[in-house]
Design a binder for these strands. Sequence first.
DNA 1: CTAATTTGGACTAATATAGTCCTATTTGAA
DNA 2: TTCAAATAGGACTATATTAGTCCAAATTAG
Lengths: 133, 133
Amino acid sequence: MIRISKKVEYALMALKFISQSDNKLVTAREISDTKKIPYDLLSKILQKLKNENILLSNQGTNGGYSLNKRTDEIYLYNLMNMLDGDIAVAECMYETKEKDCSLEDSCSIKSEVAKLQKEVEDLFKNKTISDFV
Amino acid sequence: MIRISKKVEYALMALKFISQSDNKLVTAREISDTKKIPYDLLSKILQKLKNENILLSNQGTNGGYSLNKRTDEIYLYNLMNMLDGDIAVAECMYETKEKDCSLEDSCSIKSEVAKLQKEVEDLFKNKTISDFV
DNA sequence: CTAATTTGGACTAATATAGTCCTATTTGAA
DNA sequence: TTCAAATAGGACTATATTAGTCCAAATTAG
């Protein structure tokens, strides 16, 4: 299936929201409430983005999140990678594949799949958060 | 996740195999054996392709499948659609969506997602089986 | 008649995604 | 110095999707 996961969808919405909040800290609760995103799930996503240096966070009362990068420096490709792991159009294209594709030698479409893989990657590498704002 | 399903992968391999078999009928068993594809699953896929007029079939002894279209007339996009259903980068992009996206109004990225949707579609619409042969 | 084959429904298993629950830690302010 | 508002993060459950299996019927050449 070709789909953007909910995690990435929520991340895009959250980043857009934060980017439009004039540098004041934004809480997970605030985003969750206004955008109707499950709070716990959103928290996990924001934590992840913080650990990946996309966001800055302040704990405690009056805490919240702010952007740590310009929106045009945050690539959709990277977001997808952070939140969902490797992007691969087919099993054999996983960068970190531990298990070999069961087909291997009998697979007759490998090289064209690799080409497709690159095209899909490029598409997502050419999109940044600024496109969504 | 951005992935080509096994069904589509197997379909590509099968179509390639059939296209290289000089117009003689090819059985599901033959493809399954040489390409190491689970027989029952492959059968389903070939039946589907037959019902979608991509393949012709002969039942009974000496039966099998043959192509009903030129390889450059079979689009990856259509294959994906036939075998996996609607392609949608996000829930709200399903053509046949009965359930509304829970976010709806609160969704702030809809228009850009629609653009992305089109780009992904175009990518797959521009690939035919002949690219894989 | 029989064996090889497609046809197709129903089911199960495996995997991935989405969402929940709980507790700890940090911090500003009453 | 306690309390409430936040982030941090592990463990778990539920749901959905994908992959694969099983079984029985229909077709057809020899």
